[in-house]
Design a protein around this nucleic acid. Structure first.
Ligand SMILES: [Zn+2]
Ligand SMILES: [Zn+2]
Ligand SMILES: [Zn+2]
Ligand SMILES: [Zn+2]
Lengths: 133, 133
DNA sequence: GAGTATAGCGTTATATTATAACATAATTAT
DNA sequence: ATAATTATGTTATAATATAACGCTATACTC
């Protein structure tokens, strides 16, 4: 029951804060240009921090957009079991936190009977505000 | 019940055949270098054909790999409802064709009650042959 | 606390993935 | 036949991501 939380490094903190400030997912090079004033100069610095933040579940990558978004479900303990809904029209992304869906997918077995370690699910549709406009 | 199948164009045919020949997903630039002898010279020719083939459900994009794979479930009528299993160790990808999963996901409603038009699901794990080695 | 392993940093260069833009040709629909 | 749509070929460039190298900070272990 320990919550072994290694503190974030300087760059990791800067980049996580920037991602968390944004409601929508952000792109790596947009992160870069927005944190240059904080002394982060080059892509590898961004991508390294992103990799680490993904690994520890603080952020997720939206694969269909090559963008990055902060975890909204209090730091996914199972960081590699993620589900999102994505609006085709405005690119809004929200993380789905549905225990039943989560369990259904982690329990899912393919036809050879094997279970999986993780998954990424991206739903597509039209969000409410785009629907009505 | 019509099966309105527009014939594929020359480039689309070449590229589809190449993808179908491969068991594993292939990358766009690998496609390019392998079809240059057939007169396809530049990235846009590849990406245009890929876009079209995806649209009509002949192939799918594996988002976590930026790779492309032929549809194995007899040309997905719902091309934007796709599920794959991906081996973390050898990158093998197989398309999951499970009607129950399919229905579960297409019927899924988020907490605001809205349904989605499509989805992409990628499961991660270790495939059988990697497991035993 | 000295030694060592691990993780992070800063930098330059480069690899990989994808699209813009424009002129032309082929196909399909009216 | 004309018009609209779809596809092609080409050049250039944008956008995304990693390799490689030397250095520094932090954590571990004896
Ligand atoms: Zn999360
Ligand atoms: Zn929207
Ligand atoms: Zn398919
Ligand atoms: Zn494998």
């Amino acid at each position: 029951m320990e919550n072994k939380q290694k503190p974030l490094s300087k760059n990791q903190k800067i980049i996580l804060e920037y991602i968390q400030k944004n409601k929508k997912p952000v792109k790596a090079y947009s992160i870069l240009s927005n944190v240059q004033k904080k002394g982060i100069n080059a892509p590898p610095q961004v991508y390294r921090a992103l990799d680490k933040l993904i690994e520890i579940g603080k952020i997720h990558k939206v694969e269909s957009q090559n963008s990055f978004v902060a975890c909204k479900t209090s730091d996914c303990e199972t960081p590699h079991a993620t589900a999102f809904s994505i609006c085709d029209s405005c690119d809004e992304v929200s993380e789905i936190n549905d225990p039943k869906l989560f369990k259904y997918l982690l329990d899912f077995k393919d036809n050879s009977g094997i279970k999986f370690d993780g998954y990424n699910l991206e739903f597509f549709g039209t969000c409410k505000s785009c629907e009505t406009s």
